[in-house]
Every structure is written in structure tokens, then in C-alpha cells.
């Protein structure tokens, strides 16, 4: 019980600090132009990283499972310019179907 509360306090404080550090350090000031370019590119690089990790991360490195089928279906929906809701439904539906058919 105590161990759980220490984990809640320490992880909570660390996460709040990580989320807030940019706000404290950058203040409300506009960024210098050079830094601005990097910040604008944070979104595509980080989103790409999140796509890769949340599609492929397994217990032991890379795992190819039903998520890959789901994200591939989402990619097809995106190419066909489907609205976001349809894209998400394709991802969930195909991943669920793949699992029902026996994929991990």
C-alpha cells in the first residue's frame, strides 16, 4: 500500500514536471527563429515515432501482430481520404477481425 503511494507521488511529480518543463523554460515568449524550425518539426518526428512504437512494440522488441493489420487498414482508408472516424473504425475493426482469426 505504501509502496503504491510512493510510486503515485514520485511518478506523478516527475510526469507533471516533464509536461510543464517546456512551459516554464520557454515562458510566454516567442521562440528564436532557429529554434522555431525545430519545434515545428517536433510534431512530425514524434508522431512518426508514436506510430512505429504503438504499432510494432512487443514484449521483446518488435512484434508483428493484429495491430499491423489494423494500422495498414487505416492507411488504406487515409489514402481513400476517409474521415477520421472511418479511419479509426477500420483500424479497430480489422485488428479485432485479425485477432478473432487467430493473430496475436
Amino acid at each position: 500500500m505504501t509502496e503504491a503511494w510512493i510510486a503515485v507521488a514520485v511518478i506523478g511529480a516527475a510526469t507533471i514536471a516533464l509536461k510543464g518543463a517546456g512551459t516554464v523554460v520557454l515562458g510566454g515568449r516567442p521562440l528564436p527563429a532557429r529554434f522555431d524550425a525545430v519545434v515545428a518539426l517536433l510534431a512530425p518526428s514524434l508522431l512518426a515515432g508514436l506510430v512505429v512504437v504503438q504499432t510494432l512494440e512487443g514484449d521483446d522488441g518488435i512484434a508483428l501482430d493484429a495491430r499491423v493489420a489494423g494500422v495498414a487498414a487505416a492507411a488504406v482508408a487515409l489514402i481513400l481520404r476517409a474521415p477520421l472516424l472511418v479511419v479509426l473504425a477500420c483500424a479497430a475493426g480489422v485488428a479485432a477481425a485479425a485477432r478473432a482469426l487467430g493473430a496475436a
Binding site: 508514436l50 506510430v51 495491430r67 489494423g70 492507411a75 479511419v87 483500424a91 479497430a92 479485432a96
Partner: peptide, 16 residues
């Protein structure tokens, strides 16, 4: 089992 875990990377891909 409902494929809900695949929705998160799909969202990030769509926004990317």
C-alpha cells in the same frame, strides 16, 4: 480483443 489498441497508432498516422 476489440482492436482498440490499433486505434491509437491509427490516430497518430492520420494526423501525421
Amino acid at each position: 480483443a476489440y482492436g482498440l489498441d490499433a486505434m491509437f497508432p491509427a490516430l497518430f498516422l492520420a494526423l501525421l
